[in-house]
Design a binder for these strands. Structure first.
Lengths: 207, 207
DNA sequence: TGTACATCAGTGAACGCGCGTTCACTGATGTAC
DNA sequence: TGTACATCAGTGAACGCGCGTTCACTGATGTAC
């Protein structure tokens, strides 16, 4: 072989990694093959030696972004002392730094709406990875049973993701900081609260 | 005039309204001028008699979607009995019907990520409309002072928006329903809880 | 060891298509007289 | 009332540009002998 043994697979991995950042920043329709290859130090023609279509790369970039997100949470939880694991994830999530770094940040707020417009295979893969994320958070949820832990993991994740999105929409000023803070308090309250038996909510009323 | 007195302004309003639906469904890069005009029963050439550029319409469509969302919440709150106003908004929000109707649904989950990529004027307008939304929810928040009401309004909105996004990512099955239910419980718990003085959360730790 | 050939990651010109935008034109209806 | 003209929302052909994709080619290096 003309290059190092796995030169090609390394190039491919680099393209996917770069694409997952650009995907989060600009959305699936915002990134072009030429730009992607340039980012990897190559020219556009070589793209099809690595991927069948642009869409195939997009799918891989989605998966990469979600896996990266889960991996980051897991690492953060592992490094935190017992009883502070979930708080560590939440506090690392709702920060100005994360708010301002969409490309390297959580896949959910950046790609949640995008993934719905992707092809069925990509959507299915994303749903499975979302399951994994919830399980990961659920594992860090203190007290109560596994059922309550899962339910709280879902709502905590929803609050985190929602607060980050709102904070981004609010810009970078005090309004945005206020949102981050409110989100942190709510997310941390779930685990911190000495839970009274949570009463069942009245049956849903559809408008 | 050849047509009814405000025929042109009605046509214009129709284009904006249709665009705001398509915008939520397909994203800003997913809708073309020709498609938009066809939707309004016209041909593409007439577009520029109504808008300077495609981007100008996108901006108006963003604003329309957000205003429509706020208006819907306000109406729902007004129709609910005292003490059930926020619950009415939450219960109308986290439903399978809303989950499955992105085009006519809340602007936040559909456009939150999109708006960040829009031009500064549109972003600024969105931030102001987000303020209005939070105030609207805050007005329905029972108990506590105005400061706590605002904080709770923000976190409730974050949970609602986040849960709807997660539910959409999860598809339409039991996993998705589970997310809607967990989100509803968490959002309703904020107002339902006989709030003990909520302790301040320990200082933020940035990772 | 040296030489001819094979391999293949990457190059860059070219193609076709979609889309935003322009523009000369249409035709229905209001207005002037 | 009737006729000529003005207005203007909407039409549809055309243009230019960007982008996904194709393809013949390059050139560096491994392999056969």
């Amino acid at each position: 072989m003309r290059y190092s043994k796995d030169h090609k697979s390394e190039t491919r991995a680099r393209i996917v990694k770069n694409a997952s950042v650009l995907l989060r920043e600009k959305g699936a329709n915002g990134i072009g093959v030429a730009e992607l290859m340039k980012e990897a130090g190559l020219t556009h023609g070589g793209f099809y030696a690595h991927f069948d279509t642009r869409d195939a790369l997009i799918g891989e970039a989605f998966a990469h972004a979600m896996d990266q997100t889960t991996r980051r949470w897991r690492k953060r939880a592992e490094q935190a002392p017992e009883g502070r694991k979930l708080a560590s994830v939440v506090n690392g999530y709702l920060t100005p730094e994360h708010r301002d770094d969409i490309g390297n940040g959580c896949a959910l707020p950046a790609l949640g709406a995008e993934v719905l417009r992707a092809n069925p295979k990509t959507r299915k893969a994303a749903a499975i990875k979302l399951e994994e994320m919830i399980e990961m958070i659920s594992d860090q949820m203190p007290g109560a049973g596994p059922k309550a832990a899962r339910r709280d993991a879902i709502s905590t994740l929803a609050t985190m993701l929602g607060a980050l999105m709102l904070a981004r929409m609010a810009g970078t000023g005090v309004f945005s900081s206020e949102i981050l803070e409110a989100g942190r308090q709510a997310a941390l309250a779930v685990e911190a609260a000495p839970k009274p038996a949570r009463r069942r909510v009245a049956s849903r009323r559809v408008s």
